[in-house]
Amino acid sequence: EPSQADLDALLSAVRDNRLSIEQAVTLLTPSSGGGSGGGSMDAKEILTRFKDGGLDRAAAQALLAGRTPA
């Protein structure tokens, strides 16, 4: 399960175009075949909204942490 520091680094990389959204989703869902963790939004949607400015960093982190299976 990614830590808050991992999520923060991942969000920074996506925002700075050092990591594509697809690459980030793969890192967030290493063994689930890329499927959502059952959250209301999947990781790709969360990351896309964050990059487009629709979500701030704290909200994106909380959503990603919340949808990651324990």
Results as ranks from 00 to 15, higher is better:
E1Q: 12
P2Y: 15
S3P: 10
S3M: 15
Q4C: 15
Q4G: 15
Q4N: 12
D6Q: 15
D6N: 09
D6E: 15
L7Y: 04
L7T: 04
D8W: 11
D8I: 05
L10H: 01
L10I: 12
S12M: 13
S12C: 09
S12H: 04
A13T: 01
R15H: 07
D16A: 06
N17G: 14
N17K: 10
N17H: 06
R18A: 08
R18H: 11
L19E: 01
L19Y: 05
L19I: 14
L19R: 01
L19M: 08
S20Y: 02
S20Q: 04
S20K: 03
I21Y: 01
I21L: 05
E22Y: 04
Q23V: 07
Q23W: 06
A24T: 02
V25E: 03
V25A: 07
L27C: 12
L28G: 01
L28P: 00
S32Y: 13
G33H: 13
G34V: 13
G35C: 14
S36A: 11
S36H: 12
S36T: 08
G37T: 09
G38H: 12
G38R: 05
G38M: 15
G38C: 14
G38D: 11
G39F: 11
G39Q: 09
M41A: 07
M41F: 11
D42Y: 08
D42H: 05
A43W: 07
L47P: 00
L47Y: 01
L47A: 00
L47M: 03
R49T: 04
F50T: 01
F50G: 00
K51R: 10
K51M: 05
K51D: 01
D52C: 09
G53F: 04
G53L: 03
G53S: 03
G54M: 08
G54I: 15
L55W: 02
R57Q: 15
R57T: 07
A59W: 04
A60L: 02
A60W: 02
Q61A: 11
A62R: 06
A62V: 10
A62H: 09
A62T: 10
A62L: 07
L64T: 01
L64E: 01
G66F: 10
G66I: 10
R67A: 12
T68R: 11
T68D: 03
P69R: 01
